[in-house]
């Protein structure tokens, strides 16, 4: 757009301020996790690792982290495979009601978490699952697979649809064409989807809190801490969860972006 340099600069500065606004709560969390004062404010106290020591000695926190990792490691592969299957089916096949199925598959992240939490709790109680780790796994797959499907579907939209049929015309079977053509061209997006599912599962607290009963994940532990009192221990757990999810998301983004830039050249 042909606008004055001043307008451009003002818009970019405003955008920068919005970024600072979004990162401010993340940055202060790191600062206060290392601050010796019990009450978090300025001026800062001294440097300490005491809060990290406290949470690492807390059995509840350790158990919660163990649960979180276990759940994410089961959820991410299943959600990624199901998301991939749905994306591939949408790209490859035509069937009646396909659009409807697609919209339905994208619904779960749009329903308020408390509503899903309540519905899941009632449903899983009836089949005797509520209050267990499998209950959390089942719900997380519902919440994460739409993300996997969306990110892999995006990749399929860039693939030449005739490539697979060309392979079949040359005599390759369905499966052979699948392994030789589809998997190589979608594998980065599959990995990106995997990382994204892990990140979403890692930070989910609401549905987990409803269906998990006494089983806690790290996010639910944070919720319990928040309900009791202000403590720099929340900052310490927070830092660990921030580092984990930021690493996962950056990894997913780099995979997607590298592919995009390579596709342009």
């Amino acid at each position: 757009m042909r606008v004055s340099a001043l307008t451009r600069r003002l818009a970019v500065i405003f955008m920068g301020l919005a970024l600072i606004f979004l990162y401010a709560p993340i940055l202060t969390n790191f600062v206060f996790s290392l601050n010796s004062d019990r009450f978090p404010t300025v001026p800062l106290g001294g440097f300490t690792l005491e809060w990290y020591r406290l949470i690492l000695a807390d059995a509840l926190v350790i158990d919660a982290f163990k649960n979180t990792i276990k759940i994410a490691l089961v959820v991410a592969p299943i959600a990624t495979i199901m998301g991939f299957a749905a994306a591939y089916a949408d790209y490859r096949f035509n069937f009646i009601g396909k659009r409807l199925v697609l919209i339905f598959a994208l619904m779960p992240p749009l329903i308020p978490l408390v509503v899903i939490g309540l519905a899941m709790l009632a449903y899983l109680s009836r089949i005797g699952l509520s209050g267990t780790l499998p209950a959390i796994v089942v719900s997380h797959i519902v919440l994460t697979s739409p993300f996997a499907m969306a990110i892999i579907r995006l990749r399929f939209s860039q693939i030449d649809g005739d490539l697979e049929f060309a392979a079949q015309n040359l005599g390759a079977s369905n499966w052979r064409a699948f392994w030789e053509v589809i998997i190589p061209s979608t594998k980065t997006s599959i990995l990106a989807a995997f990382l994204l599912c892990m990140a979403v599962s890692f930070d989910e607290y609401a549905v987990t809190w409803f269906v998990g009963g006494l089983e806690e994940t790290s996010s639910v532990r944070i919720l319990s801490f928040l309900q009791s009192a202000v403590s720099p221990r929340i900052n310490a757990i927070g830092s660990i969860t921030f580092i984990t999810s930021i690493t996962l998301i950056l990894g997913a983004q780099i995979l997607v972006l590298r592919r995009l830039t390579r596709g342009n050249s």
Partner: peptide, 18 residues
């Protein structure tokens, strides 16, 4: 802009409390 969306909203709310 996308990164913060996938970080724990709970912890960020706690930061705003601070």
């Amino acid at each position: 802009f996308v990164v913060p969306f996938f970080t724990s909203y709970l912890v960020r709310v706690y930061s705003w409390q601070i």
